[in-house]
Structures are given as C-alpha cells and as structure tokens.
C-alpha cells in the first residue's frame, strides 16, 4: 500500500463528505499568536497543511504573504485570497513546492525558501515515522522559523471515514524532546490539549 495515496483518499473523502470538518480551523485560531511571536508583517509564509484556507485568510489579514501546501486540494473558505497552493505530502521534499510557488508568484516568493512555515494541527495526522521528517522538510525551506501547533489527544472526525485521523498522539514531552533533536526549540507551550512550538534550524 502506498501510504501517501491511502492518506490522500481518506482526506479527499473527509473534505467532500463531512462539512463540519471544514469549520475546524486551528490555523485561524493561532494566527494572532504566530504574529505576536514573529511580528513580521509582509513576510512570506507557507501554510503547511492549509486545508480550507482559514489560516491563509487570517494571516493575510495580518499582512503576511501566503502560500499553501496540502495533501488534498479542497475548496477554500469564502474570503480566502487566491494564493499558490501545491498538493503533496508533507514528508516529501518541500523545495520543489516552494519553487513552483515562486513560479506562480515570482514577485512575492523566492525560488528556494519562504520566511516562515506555519503548520497548525497537521503533524499529529501523519504516521509517527514521518513526523520529524516532515518538520525537517519545513526547516529546510523556512529561512526564519517554523510555527507548529498540534493536538495531543485523539479527535472525533475519523469516525466518518472509519479510521482515527490522529496517527501520532503523543505527550508534550515526546514532541518537545523529538523536536529538540533536529531543531532549536525557541518556544514550546503546553496548552493542555494542544502543544505550540516555534522552531529554528540548528
């Protein structure tokens, strides 16, 4: 079984058949926090796991110049700006995606990197063996930093597609210490159900 293909099928079904899933938006919830940490309006940001684009919309309104990458392309929420979005799994090399984004919007994006990667409630959806690889991929294209939020408990929408969606449910310490192996963990906040991290390349 091709893991990327199987995951793509599950999330395609979910986006198409469960409207409520579209309304869940950690990307929107953490936009202000991201801004308070980096305070860098005008910077380029790749929303890794952008979903229906609520995070793209929220960060655009704060002045960030956005692009997205996700396993599945879905309809963006009303009001979300039309920005470059590339379909691929996050554990694959993100440099080709960043290059394609720069081709689509050459006045905004550099061909080899973005300023920040912003990834909200995405990593826990990945198979455990790919989580740190995905973070490494983000660090490789983020010139300034990587913002990550993730859930530390199971979710409820998987029942609609017959499988739990959070494939990596780990405690805060596991995430923090794993990230410390591959990155400089500038911020780590345990906010109970969620963990919030801000990383820089070592």
């Amino acid at each position: 079984m091709n893991i990327s293909k199987a995951e793509t099928e599950i999330y395609t079904e979910l986006w198409e058949s469960v409207p409520a899933y579209r309304r869940v938006s950690p990307g929107e919830r953490y936009a202000e926090l991201f801004h308070s940490i980096v305070n860098d309006s005008g910077a380029t940001v790749l929303d890794a796991g952008c979903g229906a684009g609520q995070g793209i919309l929220a960060l655009s309104q704060l002045g960030y110049r956005m692009a997205g990458v996700d396993l599945v392309r879905t309809t963006l929420v009303a009001g979300a700006p039309q920005v470059p979005i590339i379909c691929q799994s996050l554990w694959n090399d993100l440099k080709p995606a960043v290059y394609l984004i720069s081709v689509e919007a050459p006045d905004i994006f550099r061909p080899d990197s973005v300023d920040y990667v912003y990834s909200c409630d995405v990593l826990e959806h990945l198979p455990e063996q790919f989580t740190m690889l995905a973070i490494q991929r983000m660090l490789e294209v983020a010139q300034k930093g990587v913002f990550i939020s993730l859930m530390q408990q199971q979710e409820i929408y998987g029942s609609w597609v017959g499988r739990r969606l959070h494939l990596t449910v780990k405690p805060f310490i596991w995430w923090r210490d794993s990230m410390r192996e591959i990155a400089e963990v500038v911020e780590a906040r345990d906010v109970m159900a969620n963990g919030i991290f801000y990383l820089r390349a070592k």
Partner: peptide, 9 residues
Amino acid sequence: IRRQHPQVR
C-alpha cells in the same frame, strides 16, 4: 512558564 515544561493536568 517559558522554560518549555508540560503543565500538570
């Protein structure tokens, strides 16, 4: 609180 420790819950 900035020392990156988990909270008792």
